[in-house]
């Protein structure tokens, strides 16, 4: 949409824009990030892996996300370790129980020898 300003307003606006300076500082490596993003956008046909790695690259370095990710894997590892340990203990108990039965029951011992 084209806007028609009177000439004196246009001059005033131009003057104002010339005087305007940005004082807020940019985050570190902002410029690199922008160029990297532009370069990526220009690449056609991104694969799923590219998208995933780009997503990880954007998300994972954030401290809260990184902490949550490491904690989640830590907790999952603990839970799996406990669960697998219990399963293994049950299996060992069953083996030892059978061993005891074979040691006192001649029929089961004989069946095993045959």
């Amino acid at each position: 949409m084209k806007m028609n300003f009177p000439d004196e307003n246009r001059e005033a606006l131009s003057e104002l824009l010339r005087k305007w300076t940005v004082e807020a500082s940019l985050p570190p490596r902002f410029r690199d990030g922008v160029w990297r993003q532009i370069a990526r956008e220009e690449k056609p046909g991104l694969t799923l892996w590219d998208r995933l790695s780009r997503w990880l690259e954007g998300v994972l370095p954030r401290p809260k996300i990184a902490l949550a990710y490491v904690t989640a894997l830590l907790v999952a590892g603990m839970a799996m370790g406990l669960w697998m340990g219990r399963v293994e203990n049950d299996r060992t108990s069953a083996v030892l129980g059978s061993g005891y039965v074979r040691s006192v029951d001649p029929y089961q011992a004989a069946a095993l020898n045959q």
Binding site: S53, P61, Y69, V70, L73, G77, G81, M84, T92
Partner: peptide, 30 residues
């Protein structure tokens, strides 16, 4: 990317270490 990779590997390492530790302790008596 390098930082993301380090975090990714760190998480996996933490998970594997937690699994091994808990499994080892849990099955020690047996």
């Amino acid at each position: 990317m390098k930082r993301s990779l380090i975090i990714l590997l760190l998480g996996l390492l933490a998970g594997v270490a937690a699994f091994s530790g808990f499994y080892y302790v849990c099955t020690a008596s047996h």
